[in-house]
Design a protein around this nucleic acid. Sequence first.
RNA 1: GAGAGUAUAGCUCAGUUGGUUUAGAGCGAUGCCUUGACAGGGCAUAGGUCGGGGGUUCGAAUCCCUCUACUCUCACCA
Length: 905
Amino acid sequence: MELAARYEPQDKEAKWYKHWESKKYFRSTPDDREPFSIVIPPPNVTGVLHMGHMLNISIQDILCRHARQNGKNVCWVPGTDHASIATEAKVVKLLREQGIKKTDIGREAFLGHAFEWKEKYGGIILDQLKRLGASCDWERTRFTMEESLSEAVIKVFIDLYKKGKIYRGLRMTNWDPVALTALSNEEVLHREENSHLFHIKYKIEGTEDRYVVIATQRPETIMADVAIAVHPDDDRFKDLVGKKAIIPLIDRAIPIIADTYVDIEFGTGALKITPAHDQNDYEVGKRHNLEVIDILYANGTLNEKAQILVGEDRFEARKKIKGLLKDAEVLVELEQYRTSIGHSERTDAVVEPRLTFQWYLDMKEFCANALEVVEKGEVKFYPEHMSNMYNNWLKEENVRDWCISRQLWWGQQIPAWFYKEDVFVATTEEEALAQARAKYGDDIQATDLKRDEDVVDTWFSSWLWPISVFDGFDKQEELKYYYPTNVLVTGWDIIYLWVARMIMAGYEWAPELLGDQAAKGVQPFHEVYFTGMVRDSQRRKMSKSLGNSPDALALIDRYGADGVRFGMLSSGAAGNDIIFDAPIDKETKKALNESKLCDQGLNFGNKMWNALKLLKMWEVVAEPVSKETKVINELAGLWFENKINKVMGSIEKHMKVYRLSDALMELYKFIWGDFCSEYLEMIKPEYGKPIDEATLNRSLGFFGTLMSALHPFMPFVTEEIWHKLQDRKEGEDCCISSYPKSAEFDEALIKKVDGAIELISTIRKTRNEKGVKQKDPLKLYVQKTSGAEAFMAMVGLKDIISKLAYVEDIEFLEGDVPQNALPLVIGQEKFFLLINQTIDVAEEKTRLEADLKHLKGFVFGVEKKLSNERFVQNAPPQVIENERKKLADGQAKIKHIEESLGNLN
RNA sequence: GAGAGUAUAGCUCAGUUGGUUUAGAGCGAUGCCUUGACAGGGCAUAGGUCGGGGGUUCGAAUCCCUCUACUCUCACCA
């Protein structure tokens, strides 16, 4: 077989993905196996693959492939989210470029364009997931706005309305003046920004020279003022309460009122009350029965009620009014001020508090229940401390109702029809009409009803995702098999927006939908693995606008999916943010598409590829070429087999608690170190010599086992090597090979061979220090003790040492230590390496004395411990046993070193 | 303002209910090695009083208190 000099992932990855798909390995339908299900956190249809996805998808794929190899019926459901605001904004922009205005073409036509856009671009991200190797069941690809999922949303809306949990109300809401829609609190991101506090004086009505000075961040809203409030106990203003002040520039008189809401210490102690443009002012206004004057249009420009600066944007107006106030000589001071400003998560526009009618979901019960089930452990979080964040959000005093309506078209339209003052919630217009007629008489026609124009929040459909992807609201066979899903893998940043709400939805509807199967559990997932944010080397979140994120696909092109997966995984453990090591170009400040960690992954693939080449290059014969070779190969095989059994136990442990990077690192070291550096070197025939068939086959078997074990992490290179190792039958693929299991192992045997490896390493070190070439044959003596005899008696051990350390002979030492022999202490045994040069006595003495000092300190500590009665009484026997062994080892070593020092004199 | 997390080698991180040689890995650095699977390599070396201080314990990187620094979440006074 002709094998390339290097492993080139590019063409091989595409080939294997196609192969797996054609074999339908990722397809899942219910059967009698145990299910393992994961629903993908649906990326936005507008999205392109970024580093966050790569991490998240790699992890899910590892879990899925691992479960698949363990014989589970793995169902990983992919899909996309319609992302109402983001997508609508994108389509609106696209249409505008074509000279089309959304409002001109109407809802139907707009949705037509939007769906067209979705068909064209919506699948891009899913194809990109395939390049990473994601083993999703693509036949199950879902979309949050497809018919069946939308029906579920409507069903749920009506159900909640009937239960009295959904209501409509006039409230102060977070308004996005760019997207022209309300937002939920969770969609508003606060950022600290520099701002000014304008101190403005308002003249007191009926006086010539009395003023009251207020402080505000938003001078452009003074035209909407309806009062000035002071604290009732504030002596500075006591006599003003009940009088009126005059708004500058527009000369409107407003009352001065007293309210304890005002903070005496802050600003000037006098607060302008603007109920239309501030949540707190609205509350104050309500208490005092004040008028609400709204001076802003929905898009954030000033309307006629402002009287001045009409048509100006709110920020333009702020700049201009500053000049006007100055000219009017009422701007007393401009104070520097740092404050946090709410921005729309999707459009980044500064959020405007605005009084609107919206639909709300009462969250009290939902939150209490969601809190309880996590507390009880029905949903487990990894890492555990994420439950703190979760609890904090859900606890009673922080609960606020969820604003679920959005003034958009791209989404599920709210199933409500208005007639006069009434609203009728129903699945269809006919039903709504029937309800209306029941109340108002049969004269009412469908045309008299007006449907609510709004759609529901995107998250109001995604919170149903674990149920709706199985069409669970419609028919339940699949739901009963796959639900609850095993694990959710997602970023902690959407713990409130999504994770908590899915838990709520699960407990709300699953009991009824599952019926007799509800005993299995009604939670949407048993466990949640929170991934960290991917950050750059300066710990900034990777983002498009900063340009500090490497291009995900470019990384795959360069390092292969396996390399990138390795890089992502080795960056960090569950839940911690990961620092991705892509360097930043100094000039452009953009991230380069490079990564040492990914490079390490690529190199790892190459290393394994070369090990494959090695195994494939020898001539094969029936019997080992010599007796030494035979015993070496047999012992090496025994040792490695035991090591596999041991290591797999450790891997199992890691996998169980999602310590994926630990599992990967352990496999990496095992394959690179134990397999390539040790095992293969042990069995490697001398140059030009053949290998015996039994050893080769056993080695190929080991290699195959290693490929199975590594497959979930690096699926492509392992599949490639798996097939090159030996001829495989049709359908005998690494992808579905059973995952290696832990088994009994002989610890004593492992220790002995590991001891030999330590000796070999020490010999190499000594050669290095003394400038003796690694391959110059040397002679080695062992001091004869019962331990040494037992050690050397292991068949093949001596030959392994000879072979790997280039020692031509090993003899027991009975007489005096030969000239120019350097002492080496391994465990409690002492070896002498005979080198062909005179030993520098002084240098050797210094080295030994340093060792001695260190050892004596160590032994002293252990002795102190053991002579402490309370230690001996309290510590577990195992620990004491260990300490005794440490002491014995240390004392033996001290003895050896002292002897050697004696010999030097 | 309330809450949470983190601090261990030059860098990125492990260290799983306190006890396995006076703390480990990977990368990087340094030295040596190159016709023999692999320079995308081999062999080896040097780096840490576990953020500071105090306490509990026979025993602390690990538990408690306190201080410092950074990060995050939520709520915010115009």
